[in-house]
Design a binder for these strands. Structure first.
Lengths: 213, 213
DNA sequence: TTAAAATTACTCCTTTGGGAGTATTGTCTT
DNA sequence: AAGACAATACTCCCAAAGGAGTAATTTTAA
């Protein structure tokens, strides 16, 4: 499906330079592939795409400037021809299925071997989807309750979520952010509503599961 | 402190082959160092040590066959001359201080750059200890656990703590355990008192820090 | 320059949580 | 058998969280 007369260009987006280094060294000696760019932030990669395209992107979920689920949809909407392969340690069902419904063609856990990676790249280049064995097992278990999408949070909401996770009370948060306790209450209610839960502890648990904290 | 007429031998223990690949490619082109071996399990490295020694080991905490804290002590007891540098994403105070008291000479977070790694290796080779900036900050915060000893919990209290951590409300816990909601309230109050906190979220955080959950 | 979204702030009301006690019944242990 | 501790259950009172709205202002993106 892709031209054989030039190398397949790959981008790597991961917040750990050492992981990038690992992929880079695995791929750059392979005549099939070339590394078009490596990025530690999602935004960095999005900016790069405005000037240059890649065939495949290896996309981490945990990123310093937002989560990979969000960037996955953004990439797929703007550049549907790019093959997105998720790379993560997160094995939460909700994340995985969200990635696939956002256009990812693969979901690999980071403890994969070199061979598994190359096999996976071959597979997605054939137009198939690919995932680690453990991921496949997770998806096969029919889990009805966690089929809700990962909520999109605003800057302020993330900020308040963080403080709530530290165990701060509304009054303290209000004081810290120089806003009314009633406003904190509103944000708190919005968070509960977005995550479809009814208390802060489960809110925090869901947020942790989905990598939002 | 180490002989200059041969390369410094390094072992890497990490459950992610891709991370190993990253370190390997960073170090193997450096004339100062040689990679003596890479291992994805702690036991694999321990077995290796029976036949061969290394100067430095880069040791991950999260391992498939036990945790790095345990292997750290084991390595340090059997081969105190080996310089152990912990490598992890975990930034829990208790873990960090346990690693140092188990003989580690360094604690680096995995999102370090190539330069930071090489600097860190230089530092530990000079006999000093080294840690990431974030780690340093965590250690500088006064330790709550040493000021306030880890509370002793009864069987029932642990049980209720667990359910609270799952986000269950008092009423639900009461139903699950076939006791009165008022009794749950008493246990909850005892937990808050024992941990010297005043809300459930911080209770759970403290419990997590001290490994009680 | 508009329309949409985010942030702010409020009301009213109900439920849950938190602090400080008291007290009864078991169950170990010495 | 006595004392200690665990587990149970309750009281009263007040603070905080949760649910369901309304609404003004500011920011951001189309």
């Amino acid at each position: 499906m892709l031209p054989n007369n030039h190398k397949i260009s790959i981008a790597i987006v991961d917040d750990h330079p050492i992981v990038i280094q690992g992929f880079r060294s695995l791929l750059e000696n392979n005549p099939l592939y070339e590394i078009a760019g490596c990025f530690t932030t999602g935004q960095g990669f999005m900016t790069f795409l405005q000037q240059q395209r890649v065939d495949i992107v290896l996309l981490d979920i945990t990123l310093p400037d937002g989560n990979g689920v969000h960037f996955c949809r953004e990439i797929d909407e703007l550049y549907p021809e790019i093959i997105i392969v998720a790379l993560s340690n997160l094995n939460e069902r909700s994340i995985i299925s969200q990635m696939f419904s956002n256009g990812a063609k693969g979901y690999l856990l980071k403890n994969l071997s070199a061979k598994e990676l190359l096999d996976a790249l071959n597979t997605v280049l054939e137009g198939k989807t690919v995932m680690s064995l453990e991921v496949k097992e997770i998806l096969q278990q029919p889990d009805l309750n966690t089929l809700q999408p990962v909520p999109e949070l605003t800057k302020r909401e993330k900020q308040i979520l963080q403080l709530l996770a530290e165990g701060q009370k509304s009054a303290a948060i209000a004081e810290a952010l120089f806003i009314s306790p009633l406003t904190v209450k509103t944000h708190r209610a919005t968070l509960l509503h977005k995550f479809q839960v009814n208390n802060i502890v489960t809110l925090i648990n869901r947020a942790r599961e989905t990598g939002l904290i």
